[in-house]
């Protein structure tokens, strides 16, 4: 058997120990009071998919994506519930498991600089110093752009 150089999957619990607090903080920024439920859903979803991942690279970024998707699903479910109550339509069809909202789709419309900063930070998993270097701005400005993108994301999730 040919051994690949891919890093093996670390124990899932160690990922939670390393990134749990920042994922929780991120979930709080996206969905306020429902952060516990969203994070729990996200970690269970991640756990279900975990053994099928092909390698142990970019796991932090992957977890952030799962939390983002779960936050979107959560808000969509909440919105649908609200619509049902408001419209009181009797034959509401069973909602599809996901209505196609994706991380990339969600990012459309966020100002370019902020969007790039968010992707570099959370998808490419770069520290602020490197985000700044890629964007040609100061680390503080990079931090502000990421923060602006998260605020913008949060507005869309409302």
């Amino acid at each position: 058997m040919v051994k690949t150089a891919s890093p093996p999957l670390p124990p899932f619990g160690l990922l939670v120990e390393r990134h749990g607090a920042e994922l929780h903080a991120y979930a709080r920024r996206l969905v306020d009071g429902d952060a516990d439920d969203v994070l729990q859903d996200a970690l269970l979803k991640a756990l279900r998919a975990y053994p099928r991942l092909e390698h142990g690279r970019h796991l932090r970024a992957w977890l952030f994506r799962v939390v983002t998707t779960c936050a979107i699903d959560h808000v969509n479910r909440r919105r649908r519930r609200r619509e049902v109550v408001v419209d009181a339509v009797p034959e509401v069809p069973e909602p599809p498991p996901s209505d196609g909202a994706t991380f990339d789709g969600l990012l459309d419309g966020i100002p370019e600089g902020a969007r790039r900063a968010l992707v570099l930070r959370y998808v490419h998993d770069l520290p602020y110093s490197q985000v700044a270097a890629r964007l040609g701005c100061s680390p503080e400005a990079a931090r502000q752009r990421v923060s602006m993108a998260v605020r913008s994301l949060r507005e869309r999730l409302r």
């Binding site: 120990e17 390393r18 920042e22 729990q40 269970l44």
Partner: peptide
């Protein structure tokens, strides 16, 4: 930094119920 104990135990319970845990430590 990790999550607080309450969240960790809640996750472990749900994972155990769903047959999603290989081991606990």
């Amino acid at each position: 930094m990790t999550l607080d104990m309450r969240m960790l135990e809640r996750l472990a319970d749900a994972a155990a119920r769903g047959g999603l845990a290989d081991a606990f430590y």
